[in-house]
Design a protein around this nucleic acid. Structure first.
Lengths: 348, 348
DNA sequence: CCCGTGTGTGGCATCGATCCCACATGAGAA
DNA sequence: TTCTCATGTGGGATCGATGCCACACACGGG
């Protein structure tokens, strides 16, 4: 006892999973030959190949990825780390990534750090453990990227730049997009334009503020600090904070919402106040989501090619996996202003 | 030559990756001891434990998941197969699943079948290959589920029921939700109510039509076939088809849109016609998305607990992984009607 | 008749972590 | 003194697929 019935000649107690060995036995060859027959390398007589394939089908053989990974050098896995899947932006990004990678035969391992640097590191460690062939991430802080780069895992940063050397990146030209949005408002005749944003620590947020300032400067308009509201990422009562900001911001005739989350907030608050969009206040959003063309008036927005950003990031990663020595590159995608009804000349 | 410098005492040419063996050597113990020291099993003297841990840190040791999986019985991976990540419904579902599984220490492998049964099967095969501890899927057809169940992989179906025996399921009570939506319209005084849907082959679609019919029947109203529009999932010109349907459907005073995709279509078409919501036509959606409370009037909708469905599915799967013998169960979550401005009494 | 050469095939080591078991050491009991 | 027993430690097999290398076999030319 304590010993399993090895079964003398009898089929062993219904294995949970057929291995290559089982297939070989069933086909009456050695494991090597079975491997060659299924893999299609080296010499195997045609009738044996056929016999092995039939045995594999019959037993429902599925090769074990762990064993392959262990022996070989590639796991066929790519990590994807985003900040919040419930945000349509990241969902679309993930969709773009998945689209390209699955077409190339890779599996996508998904992690969500909920904006927490610590969870991002955990995700990165998991990717290392499973020997991911590469990782795409929208990093929170530098730690995750650093860890991966140190371990020589190809990394592509998406929509963010941690500043860690040794990784590729794909980003939207935030500055350019923001500038286009604000220039549009200025062209309509707005002079006092507010910007609402939820982070200015990372490149994305910084770039959007830079673009906003650049547009004002180019038009010879003053950039008042009173017109900038940074809500911060910590979950406080943003609605309340925004309401107070708008109360104080007399004279402001247009609001530039620096991302989709903020845009939703602004839209809801203005609606609560009886809207007046665009007569009393014009609105532009950075990031064009479905609902922005559903509401009345439609919201003028800077459309980011999010899905494309994901799939382009995946392509960069694949290049890098195929050819590690390539020079690191950063690709910047241009967003595009879509004008709808939420922007109009200010009433005097 | 041909032989690597084994390095007589010299540190071998910078290994790409530190293994347990390297850690053991650095700490001056055997692999077994190092393994026990890091794993925390069995007897290891305290000072050795410390030495091993330090060596591991110094070398940046990350245990290899493939090797673990190969030797052990669990991979720590769970597969998730959805139909279209760009659809907010699936994105939220995925978020719920990820939330629960990552908290339990599992990694989520994501696959998107784009509604194609063949891709679904590929995904399932990949999950088998990587020895996924379990799989959550919103199946297209039976094949993927069957394949997984045959191979004794715990499966939880989410939002759909393929009818394959041997798997758990979590679903929304479509019939009940649809019935509540239509009863609400009837209570407001509507007599001719149209339903627009994009599939009636699967349980989800069938259930919604059943609920619609049941509500009419309970109120003693006739259920005319003329009032049902099934657009089908194939990408044809749905907008056009819907427009013709509405032209024909004279007398109809309310539309029940059976999911968020259809609701968007209906909303856009009515807006194109100068809206008239709710005066000329009331609208109810099955599935409450963010935009439905952004538009004016807000759209009355059957709110589905989508995130919860995902996380509940993941919980069921975890139970099942921990205790394979449990009786299979199907959990049905009740949706909830949220009344907004898009529904009102019909004008006569 | 023997030795290449061209085709197939099987043995065996390998990848890295784990864990069973045998063994080593020291303390305490008989 | 010798024999437990408790506490640590290391050897080596194992998981499944892969691929190098040696070998088997047939055949033709020297």
């Amino acid at each position: 006892m304590g010993k399993e019935e090895a079964g003398v000649g009898a089929p062993r107690t219904r294995r949970a999973r057929a291995t290559l060995r089982d297939v070989a036995e069933a086909a009456g060859t050695s494991r090597s030959t079975a491997s060659r027959a299924l893999g299609g390398h080296g010499y195997v007589a045609e009738h044996i190949k056929k016999r092995v394939r039939e045995a594999a089908d019959r037993l429902g053989y599925v090769p074990d990825a762990s064993a392959r990974t262990l022996k070989g050098s590639s796991s066929g896995l790519v990590g994807l780390l985003v900040s919040d899947l419930r945000n349509q932006f990241y969902a679309e990004l993930a969709a773009g990534v998945e689209h390209t990678l699955s077409a190339a035969g890779y599996q996508v391992v998904l992690a969500d750090d909920h904006g927490d640097e610590h969870m991002a590191q955990n995700g990165a460690r998991a990717f290392l453990a499973m020997r991911a062939d590469g990782v795409l991430l929208a990093p929170v802080g530098r730690a995750a990227t650093e860890l991966l780069v140190e371990h020589e895992t190809p990394v592509v940063e998406v929509d963010r730049r941690s500043g860690v050397r040794g990784c590729d990146a794909v980003a939207i030209d935030s500055e350019h997009g923001a500038r286009a949005a604000v220039e549009h408002l200025i062209a309509l005749g707005h002079r006092e334009i507010a910007v609402v944003i939820d982070e200015t620590k990372w490149e994305t947020g910084k770039g959007r503020v830079r673009g906003y300032r650049a547009a004002l400067r180019a038009a010879g308009l003053p950039a008042s600090r009173r017109h900038v509201l940074d809500l911060g990422l910590t979950p406080s009562d943003h609605q309340e904070e925004l309401a107070r900001f708008l109360d104080r911001a007399t004279g402001v005739t247009a609001v530039f919402a620096a991302n989709n989350v903020v845009a939703e907030l602004v839209w809801q608050e203005l609606k609560r106040r009886g809207s007046g969009v665009p007569e009393r206040c014009s609105v532009v959003s950075f990031d064009d989501l479905g609902w922005m063309r559903m509401v009345e008036p439609g919201i003028t927005a800077v459309r980011q090619p999010v899905f494309e950003m994901g799939s382009r990031g995946a392509e960069l990663l694949l290049e890098r996996v195929g050819n590690g020595g390539r020079r690191r590159s950063t690709e910047v995608l241009r967003p595009e202003l879509v004008v709808r009804g939420s922007t109009a000349a200010p009433k005097h």
